[in-house]
Design a protein around this nucleic acid. Structure first.
Lengths: 239, 239
DNA sequence: CGGTCTGTTGATCTGAATCAAAAAGTGTGG
DNA sequence: CCACACTTTTTGATTCAGATCAACAGACCG
């Protein structure tokens, strides 16, 4: 039986979001029952340097990917940054395809489950099924766009805008999992710390905290620890 | 006759460079004579929003890719940044695969020639030839890494380090075209303006100019307009 | 309960942006 | 070939957004 492939149809585009979210299933889990793996909060799904064995699709939970830049060869001038957050239906490990080794660490922010797709199986499968090949290329391309958008954000936007854009992006990506039909999620519960957000946005954690407080004071959001309510979307988007 | 495919063998890895360069030929030009196109300095190879018709491999010359972030829907809060420079043997247009439309502008920095690979041909070809498929995936993955490295740089490094890393990256990527066997290029002639560099590095053009002057004063580089000589590689890399 | 991790807010400092001006290139047409 | 306009680059003076330093308040946990 031919596995049913779910191609570009479900590839959700976010025209204005910071990162286009990827609600794509590489293949129907029922047709090809890939194994799954559970990762505890704080544990690494994989680490930079490890040989690339599989790609992973998040089934539940949330991950951050952490990249390290070796400033000098030996000494302490090395830079580290969170380069992505990954929620349900998003794919992990794509950056390792070029070198055959993972280029970043993937750490679970909460207890999570991933579906494991061995890389050895992936390429032959894509050669067989055109739709699957197309979807994989689309996912990788979207990841390029996502990373470029992040660079654009870090290179051009002031702190307040970065935080606002971050919240808007999250709310767009979480609405699928929150099953809120039609519109975007309004109530977010952030799984990451202020330090994680800051690292991702190229800001210090104090600045993130300050900007969140300011957005609350201005009436754009409601804030209670890691619970965020989007009150005025327009206020977040503009300015 | 089967086109000879040049797979990962020539995929050049730069372990420490800002961006891994891509000296990969998707296919042997002699076997499949893809058409070429000449682009004058300042002209666009493609623009954001245009339907994706082909991917391009730079044969000679140099391009910058410019991304725009629609801050607000209508008004003037839109951000623009140079998100990449592309030299000989590097591939352009990959960011458009996900949406079917180009996500950035590609502008020639000098008179340039590209090889045109229609997207319609590409996917079937990759289904036919495993090595070609593998190479395409590797190229896209490398592009993800490149963009993430840029984000890391913009998020974590001070101005001086960004400029130094930029020069080191350039010297690594240009040595292939400069045919300097063994080591990296020492004499660079930058095809882009200070403003382009600044946009790429998330700095103002004045800051780029200042940092270049400072690096010269410190004896790390020799500077004469757009001619740069790498004098002390270690000094650039460390600190 | 003390201890560690997280988040908020305040005070101060600084690296890079901004404003400003002049010098050095680059190209054009007379 | 030169004069002119225009773009690019350099350098200086000033300002400011965000980093850094510091203190405290909850939250969570063994």
């Amino acid at each position: 039986m031919e596995p049913s492939i779910d191609p570009g149809a479900s590839l959700k585009r976010t025209a204005h979001g910071v990162a286009p979210s990827l609600h794509v299933r590489l293949s129907d889990a029922d047709a090809i029952p890939f194994p799954t793996r559970t990762v505890e909060r704080g544990d690494a799904l994989y680490c930079a340097g490890e040989p690339l064995r599989s790609l992973y699709t998040v089934q539940s939970g949330c991950f951050k990917t952490v990249s390290t830049y070796p400033g000098s060869d030996d000494d302490s001038t090395l830079h580290t940054q969170v380069t992505g957050f990954h929620f349900a239906n998003e794919t992990l490990g794509l950056d390792g395809v070029c070198t055959g080794r993972h280029e970043s660490d993937a750490v679970a922010l909460e207890p999570s489950v991933v579906r494991i797709m061995p890389v050895g199986i992936l390429e032959p499968l894509c050669r067989e099924y055109a739709a699957m090949q197309h979807t994989l290329l689309a996912i990788m391309s979207a990841e390029i766009v996502r990373a470029s958008r992040l660079a654009l954000m870090l290179g051009t936007m002031p702190a307040r805008e970065r935080v606002a854009a971050f919240l808007l992006d999250l709310s767009e990506r979480l609405d699928a999992s929150a099953a809120t039909s039609g519109e975007h999620a309004v109530e977010l519960s952030l799984p990451m710390t202020r330090a994680d957000i800051g690292s991702y946005l190229g800001l210090e954690l104090e600045t993130v905290s300050r900007m969140l407080s300011k957005l609350q004071r201005e009436g754009a959001i409601g804030l209670n620890g890691r619970q965020v309510r989007i009150v005025d979307r327009t206020m977040l988007a503009h300015h």
